[in-house]
């Protein structure tokens, strides 16, 4: 946890954390009973998140009632339309809901993570991730709904492309230290414009393009264009992390994209974090990143390694559980109401 020296050190990323609303479990129970029944095929789901907005707590990837498709025929499409907003940026995910506890515990978790990592890699290679940047935040959820006891067992993964040798950073400091007041103000205005425009507000990755005297926020697909136009370009992402010394997890796949598609060696990154709906220049970080040479990434058919199963509340790589009999069991609720 050094910073501001000219030497580089390995960059470490704070893992993303999940949160599930009660409404999601209610929805999953009826989805299982009415739509999915005994089928076990993967189901597209949507998670939601916002940039970190308080120095005390990170922002979580949250599943809500509307995370599951309500249309019974909807399971065949790869994703479904969800309503997002600036505080609820949609992230595509895949749910594997098992019929039995044995089926759940027997899931081949390494293979599932590999499949999602491969999807992310393909989206990077094809340029799709630059068009729809939220694809870089894909997640995975495995679950078993014990509807006799109203217990749910589940495990999230936030697959990240592993870069070896590791990414290093020569500097990691608050925006307020990295820029003078004039630049900070221009950055604030550009970010507010991005966050205030409904079409871009929920796009979690963007660029800040410094041209003569102005800063504009642009979609990440404009990287090459902005380079040609001249001026400085920094990559930015909505950072769920609240830690003042490290960037959050979503930066990992953005760096993979920068290495694979933009072929850059050095990249300056803004970890965008908010206070009361505007950029927090003390909490938001500017990280100067050095990417390694990755010749093997150009080989046809190459697939990078993935990482990202969430640890449970005790720091172990195991599933979590939630018990909702008190609010879901009709018999118990009838007794309590009597």
């Amino acid at each position: 946890v050094k910073e501001k020296t000219s030497t580089s050190s390995k960059l470490m990323f704070a893992p993303w954390q999940s949160a599930v609303d009660e409404g999601f479990w209610h929805q999953l129970a009826s989805f299982k009973l009415e739509t999915q029944r005994l089928a076990e095929h993967p189901v597209p789901v949507s998670g939601f998140f916002a940039p970190c907005s308080h120095p005390q707590v990170p922002s979580h990837l949250q599943l809500m009632e509307e995370s599951l498709p309500t249309d019974p025929g909807g399971h065949s499409s790869e994703s479904f339309a969800v309503q997002g907003n600036r505080n609820k940026c949609p992230v595509p995910g895949t749910l594997y809901n098992s019929n039995t506890l044995e089926g759940f515990t027997g899931l081949d978790t390494p293979s599932l993570l590999k499949i999602t990592t491969q999807q992310i890699w393909e989206d990077i290679q094809s340029g799709r991730a630059e068009e729809t940047s939220n694809l870089l935040n894909r997640f995975l959820l495995i679950s078993f709904a014990d509807l006799k006891k109203w217990s749910f067992y589940y495990w999230f993964a936030f697959p990240a492309v592993v870069i070896t040798p590791p990414v290093t950073s020569s500097s990691c400091r608050p925006v307020s230290e990295a820029f003078d007041e004039k630049e900070s103000t221009a950055i604030r205005e550009a970010c507010s414009e991005w966050r205030g425009t409904p079409a871009t507000a929920s796009s979690c990755f963007f660029l800040l393009h410094f041209t003569s005297g102005a800063v504009i926020a642009r979609p990440i697909k404009d990287w090459k264009l902005a380079q040609e136009e001249g001026g400085k370009v920094i990559a930015a992402f909505y950072d769920p992390c609240n830690i003042s010394t490290n960037p959050g997890w979503p930066l990992r796949n953005l760096l993979a994209l920068a290495a694979a598609r933009w072929e850059v060696k050095d990249l300056r990154v803004l970890c965008y974090r908010e206070k009361r709906g505007f950029i927090d220049p003390q909490l938001s970080l500017i990280v100067d990143v050095q990417l390694p040479e990755l010749p093997e990434w150009k080989a046809p058919g190459f697939l990078p390694k993935g990482v990202g199963w969430e640890l449970n509340t005790r720091g172990k790589a195991r599933p979590r559980s939630v018990h909702l009999a008190a609010s879901m069991d009709p018999e118990r609720m009838a007794n309590e109401a009597a």
């Binding site: 990323f13 506890l101 515990t105 027997g106 899931l107 990592t117 067992y153 990992r252 990482v307 979590r320």
Partner: peptide, 28 residues
């Protein structure tokens, strides 16, 4: 709600596949 995580079941133990890691050294 928040169950004690120890009541969650153990998962099957797979040899981590070639392309997957449980955790890497860039994970804080």
């Amino acid at each position: 709600a928040a169950g004690d995580d120890d009541d969650a079941p153990d998962m099957a133990d797979f040899e981590d596949a070639d392309n997957v890691m449980r955790n890497d050294d860039a994970t804080l």
